[in-house]
Amino acid sequence: MFDIDLFPLRLSLQVAGLATAICLVVGVALARLLARRRFWGRDILSALVTLPLILPPTVLGYYLLQVLGRRTAVGAFLEDVFGIQIAFAWEGAVLASTIVALPLMVRSAQAAFESVDPSLENAARTLGRSDLGVFFTITLPLAWQGVAAGTALTFARAIGEFGATIMLAGNIPGKTQTMSVAIYDAWQSGDAALANALVGILTVTSVLSLLVIGRLVRVPRW
């Protein structure tokens, strides 16, 4: 039992953590944009953000691979100019998880922002605060419950990501093999004991992570 390689667990936490952080920043910005602004292409943007929710993850991973694969124009450009490799690298797993989980964050945060009374933001603006200041002192605190729920959902979705990840990042032990992929791999190769152990570890880790996130983002009710 003690010679289990914990690399997949470390990688999964790293990938899910990073993906959640990116979703928090990008998702909150997108949610705010969609909730308050009316602009040309808003519906298209909204549909694009939601798309990963309805596309099967393998399909999504396939598209990503077609765009970002090492032999594609974009993939080659990124690798040659910036030295960034997405396909078959752990960064690919982060990207896959981020895109798959983003709609959960956006949907949850957007609903929360929409429920904030615009007259509160308007009142704050007449009191001399910048738009960014108003966002951080009024809008975000009042929408925090929704953003927090989105964060928890995002992390849960990211740590369990399988389909898009295995398509884009592959299954390279010690390099891109996350927990979900490792479990599948162990079961496929007939190692039921390892699969059982990994399943147990991931279950406990997921529940603990959500408890920690729940604690971190909890705010006192007013």
Partner: peptide, 13 residues
């Protein structure tokens, strides 16, 4: 300009 909107819009938090 001091503006008191309808229903006051006090910050509840």
């Amino acid at each position: 300009i001091g503006y008191v909107p309808q229903a006051y819009a006090l910050f509840p938090h």
